[in-house]
Amino acid sequence: MSKLVEALAMTLTQRRGRARLMLRLPHWRVAFDQSRDPAFLDICEAYELTCNGLEFWRSSDAPTRSERIAEYHELATSLELDAEAMATAWTKIGEHDC
């Protein structure tokens, strides 16, 4: 499958999440860019949705604002660790399309 077709197959949310992860974890940019692993794309999607939620709660004046910010920040950090672990595994086996 060509890179163009693969890129079109990714959802906009997955592409945005991957871009955010590439900015947040620059050491893994090449690996993230090359991966078409469905599990990684799920992480990208979850990361984008989590970042959107975090932005929402940061601008909220709801009484639970602080708790929600902490929860979404913890989730974002966990997804970053998952993405790093996946990229580390790709490096160990020498592939980006596990």
Rank of each mutant, 00 (worst) to 15 (best):
Met1His: 03
Met1Phe: 07
Lys3Asp: 08
Leu4Thr: 14
Leu4Pro: 12
Val5Asn: 11
Ala7Arg: 14
Ala7Ile: 12
Ala9His: 03
Ala9Thr: 04
Ala9Asp: 04
Met10Glu: 15
Met10Lys: 15
Thr11Leu: 02
Thr11Gly: 10
Thr11Trp: 02
Leu12Val: 07
Leu12Ile: 03
Thr13Pro: 01
Gln14Thr: 12
Arg15Pro: 00
Arg16Ala: 09
Arg16Val: 12
Gly17His: 01
Gly17Cys: 05
Arg18Leu: 07
Arg18Ala: 08
Arg20Asp: 15
Leu21Pro: 00
Leu21His: 02
Leu21Gly: 00
Met22Glu: 15
Arg24Tyr: 05
Arg24Gln: 11
Leu25Cys: 09
Leu25Asn: 04
His27Thr: 07
His27Cys: 05
His27Val: 08
His27Asp: 05
His27Trp: 11
Arg29Ser: 14
Arg29Pro: 04
Val30Thr: 08
Ala31Thr: 09
Ala31Ser: 11
Ala31Cys: 07
Phe32Asn: 00
Phe32Trp: 01
Asp33Ile: 02
Asp33Ala: 12
Gln34Leu: 08
Ser35Lys: 00
Arg36Ile: 06
Arg36Asp: 08
Arg36Leu: 05
Asp37Val: 01
Pro38Asn: 05
Pro38Arg: 13
Phe40Pro: 03
Leu41Ala: 12
Leu41Phe: 03
Leu41Lys: 13
Leu41Trp: 09
Ile43Val: 14
Glu45Arg: 15
Ala46Asn: 14
Tyr47Asp: 00
Leu49Asn: 08
Thr50Pro: 00
Thr50Ile: 01
Cys51Tyr: 08
Asn52Ser: 12
Asn52His: 14
Leu54Thr: 03
Phe56His: 12
Phe56Thr: 04
Trp57Glu: 01
Trp57Ala: 01
Trp57Asn: 01
Ser59Pro: 02
Ser60Met: 04
Ser60Cys: 03
Asp61Met: 12
Ala62Cys: 07
Ala62Tyr: 13
Ala62Phe: 06
Thr64Asn: 15
Arg65Glu: 10
Arg65His: 06
Ser66Thr: 14
Ser66Trp: 09
Glu67Arg: 14
Glu67Ala: 15
Glu67Ile: 09
Arg68Phe: 11
Arg68Gln: 11
Ile69Gln: 02
Ile69Asp: 00
Ile69Val: 15
Ala70Cys: 02
Ala70Arg: 07
Ala70His: 03
Glu71His: 07
Glu71Ser: 09
Glu71Phe: 06
Tyr72Asp: 06
Tyr72Ser: 04
Tyr72Asn: 08
His73Ile: 09
His73Thr: 13
His73Asn: 09
Glu74Arg: 08
Glu74Phe: 06
Glu74Pro: 01
Leu75His: 09
Ala76Glu: 11
Ala76Thr: 08
Ala76Gln: 12
Thr77Val: 04
Thr77Ser: 13
Thr77Cys: 02
Ser78Gly: 05
Leu79Met: 02
Glu80Ala: 13
Glu80Pro: 00
Glu80Gly: 01
Glu80Lys: 03
Leu81Ile: 04
Ala83Met: 04
Glu84Met: 15
Glu84His: 14
Ala85Gly: 13
Ala85Asn: 15
Ala85Ile: 05
Met86Leu: 14
Met86Phe: 09
Ala87Asn: 02
Thr88Tyr: 10
Thr88Lys: 14
Trp90His: 11
Thr91Leu: 14
Lys92Asn: 12
Lys92Met: 09
Lys92Leu: 13
Lys92Tyr: 09
Ile93Thr: 07
Ile93Arg: 11
Ile93Ala: 03
Ile93Ser: 07
Gly94Ala: 10
His96Gly: 08
Asp97Glu: 07
Asp97Leu: 09
Asp97Val: 05
Cys98Phe: 13
Cys98Ala: 13
